[in-house]
């Protein structure tokens, strides 16, 4: 039954199998170099980082003062915008090493116009100008701020529509992207 006549066939069979396996391996490797799901994972991490930073900024510093984020919204002046920029920029870009990260942001907040219930948006601060080419994610935080003023420039707040100080709820929105 057994003899050694078919050794060449054995080698040929093995070689054919190897060639086919290698072909399949290369073809599959070529088509799935980049998994689309991976982009969502980095987006998710960036969004979580931004949300956490906003939560940190909305924590009260002491029993007597409000959170930094609430104070910034309540009294949006040029210095407050810079305070937001410094604090938020430090929070999202700090790493364990000495070198900072390269995450850019653009922050604004939305509020309701009391006159016609329309949405208005107010710019806070940005590390870069938005060009439209960024692959940005959005992190948001609700803030209840005590605002006063009639919305004229130079006022203590830019949310118009009332004269006595009033509590208003605004949505702070930050776009984050790596650059």
């Amino acid at each position: 039954m057994k003899n050694s006549d078919g050794q060449l066939y054995t080698i040929e069979g093995l070689a054919a199998a190897l060639v086919m396996l290698l072909t399949a391996y290369f073809v599959i490797n070529a088509t799935s170099v980049y998994t689309a799901g991976d982009t969502h994972i980095t987006d998710m991490q960036l969004e979580a980082l931004g949300t956490d930073a906003l939560r940190v900024m909305d924590a009260n510093e002491s029993r007597l003062t409000g959170s930094p984020l609430r104070n910034i919204i309540s009294n949006v002046t040029f210095t407050d915008n810079q305070t937001f920029g410094t604090m938020f920029g430090n929070l999202i870009n700090s790493r364990t090493g000495a070198a900072a990260d390269h995450i850019q942001y653009s922050a604004s907040y939305s509020y309701r116009d009391l006159g016609d219930n329309s949405m208005k948006s107010m710019f806070i601060n940005a590390s870069r100008n938005l060009s439209g080419g960024e692959h940005a994610v959005r992190a948001t935080k609700w803030v209840i701020a005590n605002v006063k003023g009639d919305g004229l420039p130079g006022d203590s707040s830019y949310i118009p529509g009332f004269s006595p100080p009033q509590n208003r709820s605004v949505l702070v929105e930050v776009l984050l992207w790596r650059d």
Binding site: M119, N167, R168, S169
Partner: peptide, 14 residues
């Protein structure tokens, strides 16, 4: 006012 703010901003921005 705050209640109305939350409802309307939530609808249009979230």
């Amino acid at each position: 006012t705050v209640k109305e703010d939350i409802k309307i901003i939530s609808k249009s921005r979230k």
